[in-house]
């Protein structure tokens, strides 16, 4: 399959990319790892007239600690998030989510920025990043702004990115000691995409009581959703299997998933409670 032809520019800086976006408008697309965009172009679901490649822009890749935040360059590939010692030790749920995306080759090429900017409702990173309260640094021609996850993921394949903005960095608050993170996913057996997934962050006091919890569910709608009833049930409670099971049973409250060829809406609502329980239990077992 051959995409429609296009004009290609390898941007040398984020500033140049924003200028080119402004110049070409709707006819241009940014290219990162290309693992969402190129398949769409081959199917002619997308036929941009111009591709602006970010792959050669220096400084957009890598993971580092910046104060109380883990800073992830937008062009960091999934394999590097999955194998990052920083991510594995401080935010194991994030490394876990990166390690179950696609397959080895996809993880060697696909980027975290590309994934979240594409905002596929069946993608993994948006779910874990919603639970972890991540924010997204967007660079435009006239400045930069930082947008929190709930304001970034807006709808199916739709984010807060303006047409002339480039996502440069994903910022994840490092949880305090006594907290745990985890990600659990039911993948579609053919595509590997999310059928339903759950991400959890639990913060405990020294007695093991839950001080706060964030639980996000994917695959249940147009964007990741926080399971507010589940979170409220965990708050202030000891994290026993019974408490976790009772809280997880509410994970589908307020969701309205669509039935599809693989899974009915009822099945998704049920399976969300199962994966929420798994994610919370794993997060609670982590120091």
């Amino acid at each position: 399959m051959f995409p429609a032809n296009f004009g290609y520019v390898a941007a040398r800086s984020v500033e140049e990319a924003t200028e080119l976006l402004a110049k070409y408008g709707e006819e241009a697309k940014l290219l990162a790892g290309g693992h969402s965009l190129i398949p769409a172009m081959k199917l002619r679901l997308a036929s941009p007239r111009h591709l602006i490649d970010l792959g050669r822009v220096p400084g957009l890749s890598g993971i580092k600690v910046d104060g109380e935040t883990l800073s992830i360059g937008a062009l960091t590939v999934h394999a590097d998030v999955a194998s990052s010692d920083l991510a594995r030790h401080r935010l194991p749920g994030l490394a876990e989510a990166a390690s179950v995306i696609g397959d080895v080759q996809v993880r060697n090429r696909g980027t975290i920025g590309g994934s979240v900017a594409h905002a596929d409702p069946a993608a993994d990173f948006p779910v874990i990043l919603t639970a972890l309260d991540a924010s997204f640094v967007l660079q435009g021609r006239f400045g930069r702004r930082t947008v929190a996850a709930p304001d970034f993921f807006l709808d199916f394949y739709t984010t807060a990115l303006a047409p002339d903005e480039v996502l440069t960095e994903i910022r994840v608050p490092l949880p305090s000691s006594g907290s745990g993170t985890a990600y659990a996913k039911l993948p579609h057996p053919a595509s590997g995409y999310v059928v339903v997934s759950a991400a959890a962050l639990v913060v405990r006091d020294p007695s093991g009581r839950c001080v706060s919890a964030a639980v996000a569910i994917g695959g249940m709608g147009s964007r990741p959703q926080r399971a507010a009833a589940t979170e409220a049930s965990l708050h202030g409670q000891p994290l026993t299997p019974e408490v976790i099971a009772a809280a997880a049973a509410k994970a589908s409250e307020g969701t309205d998933p669509e039935s599809d060829l693989y899974a009915s809406a009822d099945y998704k609502r049920h399976i969300a409670t199962v994966y929420a329980r798994q994610a919370i239990e794993t997060a609670a077992s982590r120091k």
């Binding site: 390898a10 190129i38 398949p39």
Partner: peptide
């Protein structure tokens, strides 16, 4: 590609320059 296994059907040759 630079030592990593990748799917060459999902990379443009220009990206491999």
């Amino acid at each position: 590609l630079n030592g990593r296994a990748v799917k060459s059907c999902t990379i443009f040759a220009v990206q491999a320059d």
